[in-house]
Design a protein around this nucleic acid. Sequence first.
DNA 1: CAATGATCCTGTCCGC
DNA 2: TGCGGACAGGATCATT
Length: 267
Amino acid sequence: MPELPEVETVLRGLKRTINGQPLCQLDSLYNGTVIYDPEIVQPLFPAHVTEFCRRGKYIILHLERGNALVIHLRMTGKLIYTENENEDAKHIRALLTFTGCARIIFNDIRTFGKIIVTPESRIDAYLPELGPEPLDRSFSYKCLQKGFAGKKAPVKNALLDQSVVAGLGNIYVCEILYRAGISPETSVADLSVSQLKDIVNHIRQVLTEAIAMNGTSVSDFRQIDDKTGQFQNFLQVYQKEKCPQGHEIKRIKQAGRSSFYCPVCQK
DNA sequence: CAATGATCCTGTCCGC
DNA sequence: TGCGGACAGGATCATT
């Protein structure tokens, strides 16, 4: 499930792979995957990618003449570079063709992923309310204080809320809370300032380490070259039986999602 | 307004 | 062997 580190990995792969070639075609192979804003600047193609950006879990590719692609992989979306057709043709939802025949396949088993073509001026209309970028220098415990204000939800659920902080998903929140020694069931109303600071530090650490490892592949995630990431080898609680201290990991449901935590290490 | 639940969708896994 | 059901979960929408 692509979260911030996986999206960042894909973005870097795209930049490296596209390497200055203009986008000359975008094909939709599944109804609803590609969405066109009515006010696109014409002509759309061919267009160089002028900027490669990420906001939370969204990839934003700025195109010449003021258009942009807003891409969300959701759960099973993959962007894979290929020079030949074949591979897993069953789940190809869209094709991005660059000159020189380089193709990026948008493969998405569960079809929740989207590619939105829009004028840059209207990008915000396609993004939900997103909190701060956790890897920005300005991200601090004060951001969490602000995001948690007036809430009583369990810290696990609150950190999954993209309007509080952008880019975290189920796997990394479990890992962050383990490292911070905080139970996922703790109400955000009960967190001390020092706990908020711990959470912030561990968010930074975990995301930075995961990006360095090219993301986590627990099921579908792949890099642009179809290779897995490596951070799954460093998970401490997610889908684990025992924590690094040897204690039994507990699995509970919170807001419909599995939380993995160590009842001994996390209070 | 906060919080929860259903929804979208398909592949995988488990029990019978 | 196959079938039904639970599960995976990011984001949105509807409901409490």
